[in-house]
């Protein structure tokens, strides 16, 4: 059995592949959901629709989607340039440390100064965390997949070290930082828990989309990512583009970390990232590395997250079921896209 490339395909076949993937995911998860004692149809309603039927539900979805916008975008930016940054998790954590640091050490700044400073520091910290693997890749041809991935637990250990050591909360004694100064809280949107970080994320989505589709740089990045040799041949400095994309990727993830600190937690905790960086890889892949796709998939996964919490309470489904559905969706979508492009052929046929 082997894969044979198909010829040209109509655009709708891509959408069809995704619909097929969703259907297959539903079929595959129906068994476990039933085994957990729930009606699959009711469960899917909880997962996908219930969160969107109330104002608070929608707010929770947007809140859950916000960090995924940043990490999904970070991963998409790097992947598009042919730089496989799996380290958004570590870069996001570096960003949380950066933002928390200014919030702890300069607590009295007014919001107008404090918030941009926290964002910039977070982005800078994420960039720094991404710079080492990028440098190793360009200088030493060391695979960035390995280095970025392995720096994630290092970042987490760094956060835990800070929280158990110098940054331990002096009032409570818990391994969490002191609360940031009052100027460091991102204002909420429309009186909900949703904050302006969401808007910042959407702005980033638009910027990345426009740069990618409309600018010379976007074309160069696409060329460097898809055909580095041809890009080099055309005079494009591929190494520079990949390093640049790696650093922007780190900055976006770090900014996402800063947004979580200032928008949600208002302090640094060891559990501040619910694997947002890793989920970012899923988001970017499901989005086909498109910036607008990242926004759409971010919202979908946000819905699933909130739906899973809902289903856990109402249907007594294990909360991990949401993660299982997300993971299966990733696998089936990737498989469907491969099968869209390549046909299966049984050996021997000519």
């Amino acid at each position: 059995m082997r894969l044979v490339e198909r010829g040209r395909l109509p655009r709708w076949s891509g959408a069809l592949a995704v619909v097929a993937a969703v259907a297959v995911t539903a079929l595959l998860t129906a068994g476990p959901i039933r085994a957990a004692g729930a009606n699959p149809a009711a469960a899917y309603r909880r997962y996908l629709f219930t969160p969107l039927t109330s104002g608070t539900g929608v707010a929770e979805v947007l809140l859950a989607a916000t960090p995924l916008l940043f990490t999904g975008l970070a991963v998409a930016v790097a992947f598009r340039a042919g730089y496989y940054n799996i380290g958004a998790e570590g870069q996001l954590l570096a960003g949380t440390v950066g933002a928390a640091a200014v919030g702890i050490f300069l607590p009295d700044l007014p919001a107008l100064v404090a918030l941009p400073l926290a964002g910039l520091t977070g982005a800078a910290a994420g960039t720094l965390w991404a710079a080492v693997p990028a440098w190793l890749r360009v200088r030493g041809h060391i695979d960035e997949v390995v280095t970025t991935l392995l720096l994630n637990p290092v970042a987490l250990l760094g956060v835990q070290g800070l929280l158990n050591g110098p940054w331990r909360n002096p009032e409570t004694g818990f391994p969490e930082s002191a609360r940031l100064g009052p100027g460091y809280a991102i204002p909420a949107l429309l009186g909900s828990r949703v904050h302006w970080g969401l808007v910042l994320g959407l702005v980033a989505v638009v910027v990345v989309a426009v740069v990618g589709a409309r600018t010379p740089l976007g074309l160069r990045i696409a060329a460097a990512g898809h055909a580095p040799d041809a890009a080099r041949f055309s005079g494009i400095r591929v190494g520079r583009i990949q390093v640049g994309s790696a650093l922007v990727s780190g900055a976006l993830a770090g900014l996402g970390g800063a947004v979580q600190v200032t928008g949600v937690q208002h302090q640094l905790t060891a559990g501040i990232s619910h694997s947002y960086g890793y989920t970012g890889v899923v988001v970017a892949t499901l989005a086909g590395l498109s910036a607008l796709g990242v926004a759409a998939v971010g919202l979908l996964l946000g819905t699933l997250t909130v739906g899973a919490q809902n289903a856990a309470i109402v249907l007594h489904l294990p909360p991990q079921m949401g993660d299982i559905i997300t993971a299966l969706l990733l696998l089936t979508v990737v498989a469907a896209l491969v099968l869209r492009r390549y046909g299966l052929r049984i050996r021997g046929a000519t």
Partner: peptide, 24 residues
Amino acid sequence: RRGSVVGVLSVEQNLVLEDLATFR
């Protein structure tokens, strides 16, 4: 040939790839 063009990009994009500075 395949190492000189970017397959996923379009004909028009490949035609200006060496010359993007003048098409902006």
